[in-house]
């Protein structure tokens, strides 16, 4: 009786572990397959020239340098606008806002902001930044548009990271006559910065991959040269990938995969950076 009971429990345990392992495989295997498939198909297009030259013949030859640079500018532009606003809002929401219906409404709005389709942000950017603010179809309008979209993430991660700082630290500081703002500035923010940074870099890598909104506010398929000012139009990897895949007849397959590979590599690079930042901060 008790023997079979133990045996059945043992079987249940084995089954549960098998189920969990299968779930992990289901997640990991497709990712690995995608990456292998991209490398296998795109590897042959990669070369120094591909990374350092401008496209020629509608992208069939030449390189993708302007798109790489454009995407880097976009990522930087996004974070320059989204991080300060995100951190400030995060500080306000976690440290100062009272828990009343206004705050709950704001938190709800931020949650919903994260769910708004990116093309809607594109239209918002076109209406507000391109037309109303008269920034034109430009790098800066696109950065602001992507920053609006990234806000939901930077605010949420900042707020969570700040809230997670133990109250003992705050009390220790306040109890020796340090003001509330100084406490936030010198005790809370240093503690919260790894979390804030993680959110910021994730927001950046998401901005790197956005296609729909930037088409509406200034990305172009072919631009002569690199953007010289924030008010220039620009190229970007995801839009370049979209065009060479869908709109240019006779495009060699390895070029499409090569563009995708470069984009993924950039995003991956930033994600590895996040992991390293986290690791470094945990060592302290």
């Amino acid at each position: 009786m008790s023997g079979s009971n133990i045996k059945s429990r043992y079987m249940t345990q084995k089954a549960a572990i098998a189920l969990l392992a299968t779930a992990v495989l289901l997640v990991v295997v497709p990712i690995i397959l995608i990456i292998i498939y991209m490398i296998a198909n795109g590897y042959s297009s990669l070369s120094w020239d591909f990374l350092t030259q401008a496209p020629a013949q509608a992208g069939k030859t030449g390189g993708i340098l302007p798109a790489i640079i454009g995407t880097i500018y976009l990522m930087l532009g996004t974070i320059i606008f989204a991080l300060p606003v995100g951190v400030t809002a995060g500080i306000y929401l976690s440290e100062y806002a009272r828990n009343n219906w206004v705050t709950r409404l704001v938190n709800m709005a931020i949650l919903n902001l994260a769910g708004v389709p990116s093309i809607v942000f594109g239209l918002f950017g076109l209406g507000v930044f391109v037309m109303t603010f008269n920034l034109g179809m430009s790098l800066i309008a696109a950065s602001l548009t992507l920053a609006s979209q990234a806000l939901a993430m930077t605010i949420t991660t900042s707020r969570e990271a700040i809230t997670a700082v133990p109250k003992e630290y705050r009390e220790g500081s306040l109890a020796i006559g340090v003001s509330r703002w100084q406490t936030i500035r010198y005790v809370v923010l240093p503690q919260a910065s790894p979390g804030i940074l993680t959110g910021a870099i994730l927001a950046m890598s998401r901005a790197a991959g956005e296609t729909a909104p930037i088409i509406v506010v200034g990305a172009a398929f072919l631009v002569g040269g690199l953007p010289g000012s924030p008010f220039d139009r620009f190229m970007a990897l995801p839009y370049h990938l979209y065009t060479v895949s869908a709109h240019i007849p006779g495009m060699p397959a390895d070029i499409k995969w090569g563009v995708a590979l470069v984009l993924i590599a950039m995003v991956l690079f930033f994600n590895i950076l996040v992991t390293m930042v986290r690791f470094e901060s945990r060592k302290r």
Binding site: E168, E171, G172, A175, I176, G177, S179, V187
Partner: peptide, 20 residues
Amino acid sequence: VVELRKRVGMVFQKPNPFPM
């Protein structure tokens, strides 16, 4: 209140040195 707490300091139950 900030000035008051400068002159009336406090030590807590759980030691809470800052992570510095």
